[in-house]
Amino acid sequence: MQLYLIRHPRPRVAPGTCYGRLDLELAEPAGQAATRIAPRLPAGLPLWTSPARRCRELAAALHPAPAIEPRLWEMDFGLWEGKSWDEIGPAALDSWAADPAGFVPPGGESGLQVQARALDFVRELAQTGIIAAAVLTHAGILRALLAHQLQWPGQRWLELRFDYEQIVPLHFNRP
């Protein structure tokens, strides 16, 4: 199955803020981002999107009937949500960086939990017989799916970086 994983556009949030489940609006109108993204996608793809506003707004500008999929939400950072990286502090961030797959922020979820729900979605999608689809989501979901595909250990996950509006074509052959 061919997936076109799309990271949402830049959200309206102060630089240096931890956000995952915060439901942020986009920094610019979704239509502007859609005019940049649409030409880079094959025409007529079905589109699944995270329920996050920053994804839903773009999805509506890209597709007449996007499917909202809760398993595509970004990682839940728990008590870190909305705090600056400075407030979270270097000791906590170092713990996360040492094990991005297994570390659980207080009240949040681990990268492996994110990966499990994202893979559950992809496996279910593959069972429908769909050959290709666009998936509008977050860097954490892209990281979890690509790490699975590459068979990377959790310690390497943070090496995978994605720009806003980046499209990652992925022939998913390891459901």
Rank of each mutant, 00 (worst) to 15 (best):
D163Q: 12
G102C: 09
F77E: 01
E25D: 15
H171E: 05
Q127I: 01
C55I: 09
W96N: 02
G107M: 09
P42L: 15
R156G: 08
L22G: 07
L45T: 11
L24K: 07
A43P: 12
G78C: 04
L142H: 12
E57V: 00
P29N: 04
Q155A: 14
A98D: 09
R7G: 01
L136P: 10
R7L: 07
L5S: 00
W96K: 00
P29V: 05
A147P: 03
Q155S: 13
C55Y: 03
Q127P: 01
E165T: 11
P11M: 13
Y164F: 08
H8Y: 03
L158K: 00
L5R: 01
H148Q: 15
L119E: 12
A97M: 08
W96L: 06
R71N: 10
E159T: 05
G82S: 07
L45I: 06
F162G: 00
M1R: 01
L119N: 10
R161T: 11
D120C: 12
L58S: 03
L22T: 15
A139K: 00
S110V: 12
L3C: 04
A116G: 04
C55F: 04
V135E: 04
I37N: 02
Q113E: 10
H63N: 04
K83W: 01
P175D: 13
M75N: 06
Q115A: 15
A118P: 10
S95Q: 15
E28G: 07
E69Q: 14
L41W: 15
P15Y: 11
S50L: 04
W152Q: 09
L170W: 07
V135R: 06
I6K: 02
A52H: 05
L160E: 04
W152I: 05
P66A: 12
G111Y: 05
A52G: 05
P90K: 00
C55E: 09
S50R: 04
P70Y: 03
E159S: 05
E28V: 08
